[in-house]
Design a protein around this nucleic acid. Sequence first.
DNA 1: ACCTGAACACCGTTCAAGT
DNA 2: ACCTGAACACCGTTCAAGT
Lengths: 188, 188
Amino acid sequence: MALSTSDDAGRYHHGDLRRALLDAGARLLRAGGVDAVTLREAARAAGVSHNAPYRHFVSREALLAAVSAEGFRDLRRRLEAADGGPKANAIGLGHIYLRFAAEERPHFLLMFGGVIDKADFPDLAEAAAAALAVLDRAVSGGGAESAAAETLRAWALVHGLAHLVAERQITPETARAVLGEEPRPPFR
Amino acid sequence: MALSTSDDAGRYHHGDLRRALLDAGARLLRAGGVDAVTLREAARAAGVSHNAPYRHFVSREALLAAVSAEGFRDLRRRLEAADGGPKANAIGLGHIYLRFAAEERPHFLLMFGGVIDKADFPDLAEAAAAALAVLDRAVSGGGAESAAAETLRAWALVHGLAHLVAERQITPETARAVLGEEPRPPFR
DNA sequence: ACCTGAACACCGTTCAAGT
DNA sequence: ACCTGAACACCGTTCAAGT
C-alpha cells in the first residue's frame, strides 16, 4: 500500500515505460523479426516521443539485449516447469528446447543470432547462463564435471536441430524424430 | 577476342559492377557484420552513385542473399577439397564445417541467421543445398536413404557446435574436442 | 527524474533524366 | 543498357529545453 499508490502508478505515462517498451519490442520482433524492432516504433507504440526510450535503454542494441534476456528467462521457465515433472530428463528438456525454437522463432533467432555481444550486456549473459544451467544439470546430473563433453554434445545436438528448424531447413517433426521420444538414456 | 575487347571491359565503371558490389558486400560483412552491409556503402566502395546497385540487385536483401550464396559456394569448395583427400570422411568434413564457422564467422551468421528467406532467392537455395549435399553424401554414402536420421543427427551436431562457436558460447578447441579427432566411425 | 521538439547524419527505395 | 541527382520516408542518436 505504501509503495503502490495511484500516485506511483501515474509517475510515468504508462506507470512503467520500460515495461511498455519491452512489450512493444517483443511484439515487433514477433511480427517482423529483428529488423522491425526499432526504438522509434516502440516509442510510438508506447505513446511517447521518439526519444523517451533513451531514459530506459542506452541504445537500440540495449533494447534488443533486454528483449533477448526476456526470451532466455522464458526458455528457462519452460525448462524448469518440465524439470521435476513427467519430463524430468534430458530428452524431455531437448523437446522443450525444440518447441521454444519453433513457437518463438523470432526470439530464438535473436537470442542465438550472434548479433548482440553478451559481453556488453551482463543481464543478458546472466539470463542466458541461467537457462543453459538447467540443461547442464539435467545432463551432467549436477556433478562436479559440469559442462563436460556429454553435456556439450547433447546441447550441441539439440541446439543444432533447433536452429535448423528455425532456419526452416528441417521440419519440427523431423527434429523430434531425430531427437527420439524415449525418456532415457539422455539424448542418444 | 570478339567478346572480351577493351571496349567490353570499359562498359561499366569497373568492368563488372556486380562483382565489385559483391566484393564490397563481403568486405563490409567481415568488417562490421550484417548491419554494416548497406547498398549505399557498397556503392561508395565501388565508386558509383548510391543507386547504381539497383541495376544488379533489386534490394539490399538481394545483395545479402548473393553474398550468402557466395559463402555457401565457398563452404562447398572447402568440403569438396577435403572430400576424397586425406579427410574423406564425415568427421573430417565436420571439422571443415567448424573451421568455416570460426574463420568466416560473419558469413556463417548471415548464411545461417534465418533472416533471409531462401524461398525468395533460388540461387541462394541452390548454393545452400549443394553445400549440404556434400555432407549428406559423406554420411549416408550416397545411398537411397539420403538425408536419413543418421545424416541429420550428424549434421545437427556439427551445426550446433559450429553455431555455439560462432556465438562465442564455446571455444573452437572445445568444439573440436567434442567432435573428436578419429577418422572413423562418422561423427560419434 | 522524466519527457519533448528540433536537428544531424545516415538509410532503402523511387523517379525523372541523361548518355 | 547503365548510370546520375533529387527527393521521400524512414532510422539512431544528440542536444537544448521544459515540468
